[in-house]
Structure formats: C-alpha cells, structure tokens
C-alpha cells in the first residue's frame, strides 16, 4: 500500500510546462522524479523525502506513470489551501488522488489510470561547478521575466561579488546585476535560453532562495530547496555560432 499526503502542490505547477507526463518513483524513502523536458534540452529532478509528507507510507517500490497535464488541472482547481494525497493499492494500474480542503472539509477523489511512460533515464555526473550562487528566488524570477519580455537568451556572467544576466536581441540589449556572497573559483560566462529560465522560476513559491550552479560549457543547475527535498533543473547551454 502506498499513501502520501503533500502540502506543496505548487511543485506540480513548476514543472507542468516542461514535462507532459512522468514516472513517479515511490520508495519507502520518498518520491523521486527524473525526466527530460519535452524538447530534450533540460532535465528535471525532484526528490521529496518521506519526512516531508504527513503521513507517508510505502511498503513496496512503485512506479506511477502520471500525466502532469491532468495533475495540474486537478491541483489548479483545488486552490492554494488544498492538500494533495496520492494513494495506490496492490493494483499498479490505477492510483487515487485525493484533494482535501482543510478549511471547508471538502474532499475530492479521483481514480486515475497509471500511464505507461517510455522514459529515458539519464545519468547525471557529479560536477564541480566554478560558481554556486544563491540569490532570492523572487529576484531571479523578476529578472528572467523582465528580460524575456523583449529578448530570447541570456548570458550569465559571474564575478567575485556580482552575477550579471545580460541579453541582446533584435530590439537591443538589456542586463540585470545582483550582488551575491558566494565563492567562485574563476570567472564564468554561459548563454542559456530565457524561455526555460522563466519556466524554472515558476518554482519560486517553493523556496525563498534559488541556487545557480554555473560552469562554462556544462549544463547550468537551477535548484530550489523544498521542505525535505529539492527541485533541480539542469539546462544545456548554447555553444558557439
């Protein structure tokens, strides 16, 4: 039997524009998801440890194939105050989603068919990044949204004290600079698509801060810590002409 109750349903919203459906790997230690985005330029890794759920019970390994498009609709209409519970019995073909509004006591139940998902599993190597910079998540979202109104990609440059997001396009150029207190092993410059950063920054509500791990010419890591876990977004850089 599997039963998990989750209070940060906003996590679903953060990944719905990147992934249509995914296997949720349920273990006694917690729930994990690792999947390439639809255009195969990013990888989303989510880990939610058992301790972050009240309650959490999983007595055998279970892979639930879940449509995030459907899950998003369910969570969206439940509102912010609702908790989401996932239940499965010995039949792996279906699972239950239970939405509970604590204020009104309203309970909505769904019986959902597990999807068979053809998912490629990528090995993510351990990387020593040249810079690991933590900034307020709301500032990061503001910068990404603002620059993306007019421009398409952003060059991230980091120095000892500042991280600079600069961008140029047909209409001209723009940049945003933020102070940080992180250690750098050397200067970094990498260019990535703003559209994806805007998507990643939808996880802003999950955490006050976001950590950017950067090295030239390797995927950038954008990480949001959540209670008893994390949401990580790896994004392949743009290289050369």
């Amino acid at each position: 039997l599997f039963h998990a109750r989750f209070e940060q349903a906003g996590l679903v919203d953060a990944i719905k524009d990147l992934i249509q459906d995914s296997d949720f790997h349920c273990r006694d230690s917690g729930i994990a998801l690792r999947n390439m985005d639809n255009s195969q330029v990013a990888v989303v890794v989510i880990l939610l440890e058992a301790g972050g759920f009240l309650p959490y019970h999983c007595d055998r390994r279970l892979n639930l194939g879940i449509s995030l498009t459907s899950l998003t609709k369910i969570v969206h209409y439940a509102g912010d105050e609702a908790t989401l519970a996932l239940k499965a019995n010995d039949n792996p073909d279906t699972f239950n989603l239970v939405l509970e509004c604590l204020q009104t006591g309203c309970i909505i139940k769904y019986d959902i068919k597990s999807r068979d998902i053809d998912q490629e599993h990528l090995e993510i190597p351990k990387t020593d990044y040249a810079a690991t910079i933590t900034i307020p998540s709301a500032e990061f979202q503001r910068i990404c949204r603002n620059l993306s109104q007019l421009l398409e990609s952003v060059a991230n440059e980091a120095s000892e004290e500042r991280i600079k997001f600069s961008s140029s396009g047909d209409i001209g150029s723009g940049s945003a600079t933020l102070r940080h207190n992180s250690d750098l092993t050397g200067p970094i410059a990498l260019t990535i698509s703003l559209k994806y950063l805007v998507n990643f920054s939808k996880a802003t509500a999950l955490s006050y801060s976001v950590t950017l791990s950067l090295s030239s010419e390797v995927p950038q890591l954008v990480e949001y810590k959540v209670e008893s876990g994390f949401a990580r977004f790896y994004f392949a850089p743009q290289i050369g002409e």
Binding site: V43, L122, A236, Q238, I239, G240, E241
Partner: peptide, 14 residues
C-alpha cells in the same frame, strides 16, 4: 546567437 545543445550530449543514458 549560439547553438542550443541537447541535454543528452552531457548526460548519458543509464
């Protein structure tokens, strides 16, 4: 504009 790389060119399948 640079060329967008695929993530699989950095992360190999298991």
């Amino acid at each position: 504009q640079g060329k967008q790389r695929m993530i699989s060119s950095f992360f190999a399948p298991k």
